[in-house]
Amino acid sequence: MKEFILRYQRQITLEGFGMEAQEKLSKAKVLVIGAGGLGCPVLQYLAAAGIGYLGVADDDTIQFSNLNRQILFGQEDIGQYKVDIAAAKLNALNDRVKIITYQERWNQQMCIEHFPNYDIIVDATDNFASRYMINDACVLLDKPLVFGAVSKYEGQLAVFNVVSNDIAVNYRDIFPTPPKNDEVLNCAEGGVLGVLPGTIGVMQATEVIKLITGVGAPLANQMLTYNALNNQYITIQLIKNSEAIKTSPTTLDIFMQTNYAHLCS
């Protein structure tokens, strides 16, 4: 108990936070899908903040080109699985956090099997197929989703499936269908400033903490866009989109039959 108070002293003493919020964090279960540029800072700050139970999913190994932004990993970790190194680093940071690793490419079956065990899902993936799949599963299974995405010098942040003013929007309310291949650049083609997913990832971790503790107002029904080049932050109000109902799977059976890889190519 003494260690608990010492470790989290700086946030326990925060006005409006206190022991009550800290205990909520220690009971919370958060799943972070993707342990890359966004996932690393999300995981690091959530482990440091004292989240009780942290799921980490990624099927990739560490590459040299990851190191400019994936800050949980070092040169000596090249070739190792991201989830293994992430778990070791997070455990060294805070061994009171229970870390569960999934060294697999996240799929539809895993959404249905594992989402019910978590309070909040964090989308830290790097492709539209995963993003649409995770979004649709969160809608069907009624899970709050903290979304982050980056491109070059810009990032987007949103909280989906959280009711505010009687509505709860999701990604399909913004973009009902995925873009075609020629309509967007991926990170490898377009590049990304290393620190940028750090900025957005830390903001995702902040939204997770706000959702769990009830401190502040989460970014529900809004999307924030950040441009690192000119320090422009724009937050837009979102509304339900009638197109989204037509393009979203309405049952888990239809969800399971949806070919996301095909949909997003």
């Binding site: 967007v184 991926n186 990170c187």
Partner: peptide
């Protein structure tokens, strides 16, 4: 003016518009 629009709505004078694409990177 910081509100998403899907329909053919009128645009007020001096409005500030944002054209926003989807991002996939992470």
């Amino acid at each position: 003016n910081n509100k998403i629009v899907f329909d053919n709505e009128p645009i007020e004078e001096n409005a500030k518009l944002a054209f926003m694409p989807p991002f996939s990177g992470g």
